[in-house]
């Protein structure tokens, strides 16, 4: 990231170019940008990218699905600051290799998740209805998510989300939650980009916990194919059909 005219924005630099005022303290979802960039990269060219721990996990999910060639991505590990870790309520902030920054321990809990799960289900439902009513269907949460990579998004299907009218209704958020259950790496980008201030990361964390409890699987785990794409015996599903939907 580079600061120019008072704005911090991602920047791409070629070999030998002067990087200028590089900033690493602003959270930014570079993997989403990389997904858009990757198809345009000339053959064989490599790209180095700043990777936090969550980006590393996002890359693992992307590699698993064969969207990027592992050999063409060079990761520059960035350890997040204490403030950032607190903002993300992140439990796993240290990348496998730290090239920039000081590693700090993660935080174990998210106050809002705990508060919600201690509520009665009626209260919890009221909370989420209030939150989801604010949604203006801008798709920022989807567009900025590093692991939303289907070519045809189910949320754009009229069957599930009406074309006109806001808010899009509860199903928009429930379906999105299901689709990300085995992919979301809890980077918090959806929450940061939501103009309505919906605590989307908290929702993601609640589902992630259930998923972990049920299948002992957290997205970003390099070794595992998602439990949703396996049979009961844990064998991966075969075939060239799209297993995502």
């Amino acid at each position: 990231m580079r600061e120019e005219h008072g704005n911090v924005a991602p920047v791409m630099i070629a070999k030998g170019e002067d990087p200028g005022d590089v900033r690493t303290d602003v959270p930014y979802q570079l993997m989403t940008i990389l997904s858009n960039l990757y198809p345009w990269m000339s053959d064989g060219k490599k790209i180095a990218v700043l990777t936090r721990r969550c980006d590393e996990k996002a890359l693992a999910e992307i590699f698993k699905r064969g969207y990027f060639d592992r050999a063409r991505i060079v990761q520059i590990g960035l350890a997040c600051s204490k403030e950032q870790i607190a903002a993300c309520r992140c439990s796993d902030p240290v990348p496998s290799t730290v090239d920039i920054g000081e590693p700090h321990a993660g935080v174990g809990s998210d106050a809002l998740s705990e508060k919600l799960m201690n509520m009665s289900s009626e209260e919890r439902l009221r909370f989420w209805i209030y939150q989801f009513r604010k949604c203006n269907k801008c798709f920022a949460c989807t567009a900025n998510c590093p692991v939303c990579f289907c070519d045809e998004c189910v949320l754009e299907e009229r069957t599930f989300v009406p074309e006109r009218g806001v808010p899009p209704g509860m199903s928009f958020h429930l379906i999105r939650a299901y689709h990300l259950a085995d992919k979301c790496i809890e980077c918090g980008e959806c929450e940061r980009s939501c103009p309505a201030g919906i605590p989307l990361l908290t929702f993601r964390k609640l589902v992630a916990k259930d998923f972990r409890d049920m299948y002992k699987f957290s997205p970003g785990d390099d070794k595992n194919v998602s439990p949703l794409l396996t049979t009961l015996e844990g064998e991966a599903l075969e075939g060239d059909e799209c297993n995502e939907c």
Partner: peptide, 16 residues
Amino acid sequence: AKRIPVVQKILKDVGI
């Protein structure tokens, strides 16, 4: 058998 439990948990998380 693997999908429906996820659906159930998501519903539980929003209070249904």
